[in-house]
């Protein structure tokens, strides 16, 4: 019994169907508790006022935006090395979820930035990196859509994910360098905005982070199942077409 037995689509589907109700319930529960707790039961921050409540959306979404890409990277590697179809399909299934998380992080960040920094957007390293991550997601999804043969698409997108990861990290450091070069001396208070948070804010934040993680897991499991079914349907039709 090894973990690789779940590379078999049938076994994967059986397991994922069995565990999904639990994960979905836990995800909805954690997200609801985290957000409601944060929204209704936490005090305002002395400096940020009520806008501190946005943190319960912003930080978990940003966390999952990066983790989704990381998961796609691992899945791509597994596909390239061990050729498990489930792995490639899981990477495909995760990308749109990652896009949505990135989008939420960007939007909530902009809404928070407007009253706090007086602007929707600054070309701060952190913000810029996220925008670049968003572009990488778009390219990855577009490549999946464009290539017709599913195995070739899995191959190409996997390599793009690997190369993209290297360049994403490179961009992160380039952007840091670039912004310091541009705004020497000016400091944008990005990482301080309640990151080193007090316990009152921290516990609901952790619940919300766990909830977003579970929600990501549930969505990816479900979407992977969808991709497997679509693939099998087209394979059945193709084979019937060939034999008749």
């Amino acid at each position: 019994m090894s973990i690789w037995q779940y590379a078999n689509p049938v076994k994967f589907l059986a397991l994922s169907t069995r565990v999904q109700p639990v994960i979905w319930t836990a995800a909805v529960l954690c997200v609801a508790v985290g957000l409601l707790w944060g929204f209704f039961a936490t005090p305002d921050d002395a400096r940020q006022g009520a806008t501190v409540k946005i943190i319960y959306l912003h930080v978990p979404a940003a966390l999952m935006a990066i983790n989704a890409w990381f998961m796609m990277l691992v899945a791509s590697l597994i596909w390239l090395i061990r050729r498990h179809h489930v792995s490639a399909l899981a990477a495909k299934a995760a990308a749109p979820v990652g896009v949505v998380m990135t989008l939420i992080a960007l939007i909530t960040g902009a809404i928070w930035g407007q009253p706090m920094w007086g602007t929707w957007w600054v070309w701060d390293p952190r913000l810029t990196s996220f925008l670049i991550l968003f572009l990488f997601y778009l390219g990855y999804i577009a490549l999946w859509e464009a290539v017709e043969d599913p195995d070739t698409a899995a191959d190409l997108t996997s390599v793009l994910c690997l190369v993209g990861s290297v360049f994403a990290v490179l961009s992160r450091y380039a952007v840091k360098f670039w912004n310091q070069g541009l705004h020497q001396g000016t400091s944008v208070p990005v990482a301080t905005g309640g990151r080193s948070v007090a316990d009152v804010f921290f516990y609901p934040l952790v619940v919300s982070m766990v909830g977003f993680g579970l929600l990501f897991l549930a969505l990816v499991l479900y979407r992977t199942g969808t991709e497997i079914r679509l693939r099998r349907a087209s394979a059945l039709l193709a084979r019937a077409g060939r034999e008749s």
């Binding site: 305002d44 006022g49 009520a50 806008t51 959306l57 939420i104 939007i107 909530t108």
Partner: peptide, 18 residues
Amino acid sequence: GKYAVEVLSAYAVSLVIL
């Protein structure tokens, strides 16, 4: 307080997207 619009819109947009 004075940030009602921001907080509510952030929650609304995020939940709608999700």
